[in-house]
């Protein structure tokens, strides 16, 4: 038998929830010390559960867990921060969920990444305090950098030469900006504007608060969203579920089609 303790304490942000059986749920937690992990909360869907509200997704909680045969089991949980203002605003809520999904997809199980954790907490706090959606762009850049996909912005990703002040090729496959001389070897990508490059360079050295203070024009904001969205898609080799959702919220629902409701599937 190992001599490890039978239970442990950790804090963490709840990234997602899946239901299990009649009244249990499996929660995915991101913790600064344990990394990302799944754990079971027993009977948490019953109305008298004492842990229920403390384990809602997007909540930062202090939790106590017992080692289980397969998954660990929550024994206690208490909220540190619930980010009420985020929950009350559909746009910020969706962004927060999107950022949680990024953390979920960019991390491996049980690999501690305290910097990424601090970044996520900073983001939730910023959104809670009413930051503009621009912080999500900062978050995307930092998630990429923190998980080994840093985008080269200062010099050419291929020849390390200087980047001229003009529209420049941005190639995820090459690892960042590609100068005019290397463009033919840069692979597929898109040309991005000088303003977008400057905004991303600023983000690489600024705090989240400083970046959130920027007043970006809608056009530039949209360009950054597109460029970083593509970079993330290409690293993950898939769409994010909530990313599609962010887009869906921006456009109104398709005009109602009159169709007769079908049978129960």
């Amino acid at each position: 038998m190992s001599t490890r303790p039978r239970s442990y304490n950790t804090e963490g942000v709840i990234l997602r929830r899946r239901n299990l059986g009649e009244a249990d749920s499996i929660f995915t937690v991101f913790s600064p010390t344990e990394g990302k992990f799944d754990a079971i909360a027993r009977a948490v869907r019953k109305p008298k559960s004492r842990m229920r509200g403390h384990l809602e997704p997007l909540t930062r909680s202090q939790m106590h867990l017992a080692h289980g045969r397969n998954l660990d089991v929550f024994t206690q949980a208490e909220t540190i921060a619930a980010y009420l203002a985020v929950r009350d605003d559909l746009d910020r809520l969706t962004l927060a969920i999107y950022c949680c999904e990024l953390v979920d997809r960019f991390t491996a199980d049980r690999a501690a990444q305290s910097e990424l954790y601090d970044l996520l907490v900073d983001l939730l706090e910023a959104l809670d305090a009413g930051a503009s959606p621009t912080v999500a762009r900062y978050f995307e850049l930092r998630v990429l950098a923190n998980t080994g996909y840093e985008i080269r912005l200062s010099h050419c990703a291929i020849c390390d030469g200087p980047i001229a002040e003009e529209d420049t090729l941005f190639s995820v496959a090459s690892g960042g900006l590609v100068c005019g001389g290397c463009r033919s070897r840069g692979g597929s990508g898109r040309l991005i504007s000088v303003r977008a490059i400057k905004a991303m360079r600023f983000a690489a050295n600024a705090t989240m608060g400083q970046f959130a203070g920027l007043r970006l024009e809608a056009e530039l904001e949209a360009e950054l969203q597109r460029v970083l969205g593509e970079a993330i898609r290409s690293v993950l080799e898939r769409e994010t579920n909530s990313g599609r959702y962010v887009e869906a919220l921006a456009v109104p629902l398709r005009p109602p089609v009159h169709e007769s409701p079908g049978d129960v599937q």
């Binding site: 949680c100 579920n241 959702y245 629902l253 109602p256």
Partner: peptide
């Protein structure tokens, strides 16, 4: 129910019928 994490969007539930 809308579930951004699992990718359940407005088109996947019966919202449109409510609008009608």
């Amino acid at each position: 129910i809308l579930n951004p994490i699992d990718g359940v969007g407005p088109e996947d539930i019966h919202v449109r019928e409510l609008v009608v």
